[in-house]
Write a protein that binds this DNA or RNA. Structure first.
Lengths: 142, 142
DNA sequence: TTGCGTGCAAAGGTTTTGCATGGCA
DNA sequence: TGCCATGCAAAACCTTTGCACGCAA
């Protein structure tokens, strides 16, 4: 995770702006591309991928690869510091990202460290599954 | 999850045989294809995908989509009841993927389902962190 | 015989790469 | 000025689909 040392271009600004304003949901390259085009400042697909890669590298954006879906999802992470101390649940249906503060779960860190010699980085770890609303609501897919 | 009602062909037999004999690790379409070709009974890519889909459907094989990886992984599930689920640990330093069978950890599924109403899908969930060797060895790594 | 399985090739979609140009610092 | 970012197009990849033929039951 290295610092963002890149230049500030208008295109990049627009891209990050979009990600920030949609930080409550995940998005993808297609959406970003379509949005930027509709805003009158289209950005080439290749550039979007390149910028996204850097943002992921710098930790500002998280990349999700979800089974059954084509293409990766991206989501802006507001507070990198805070997110280091809790786990994340990602709903496969609605795409919601849940920040889960739970002492019980933090205990698994110790368990795994002790019994399996593996040190988990919670800020990088995401549990995939189905959230309460989606599993209760219906079986319908998005 | 429906029954496997398909025919028994030589190609299918070879494919399943390979999966069974490599049930302790993940594999992918590329590997399967290369192996079958080297064995003198090549199988078309399309057919591999089609058979794999059926095997996943029938529950004999599990499909994994791992963050950052291109292409899906597949793994034969010997005892659907017993080893139906396990988690993965991915080392951020050496990139090693560890398959972790641990009853204790499976308890977190129940905990999260009960207390947070979230149903985890272990087949997509990967714990990121640092493995024993890497954390013991040194702090320098790729 | 019936219908699924297979092969081959082509298509579809996502992501990457190369190269020349343009813009930030 | 030097270097990174961008655009465009082509390429690389993974996966799916169409169609004719072969084989299991």
């Amino acid at each position: 995770m290295k610092r963002d040392t890149g230049y500030n271009t208008k295109q990049k600004e627009k891209l990050v702006d979009y990600l920030v304003r949609n930080k409550e949901k995940h998005t993808n390259v297609q959406e970003i591309s379509a949005y930027l085009a509709s805003e009158g400042s289209p950005l080439g697909t290749a550039t979007i991928y390149r910028q996204l890669d850097k943002l992921v590298e710098s930790g500002l954006v998280r990349k999700f690869v979800i089974d059954g879906k084509m293409g990766a999802c991206y989501q802006y992470i507001e507070n990198t510091e805070e997110c280091r101390e809790h786990f994340h649940l990602k709903c496969l249906k609605c795409g919601k990202l849940i920040h889960l503060n739970c002492d019980h779960l933090m205990g698994i860190n110790e368990h795994i460290a002790e019994h399996h010699g593996f040190i988990i980085d919670p800020s990088q770890t995401v549990f995939y599954g189905v959230c309460a609303e989606c599993s209760a609501g219906s079986d319908e897919q998005v």
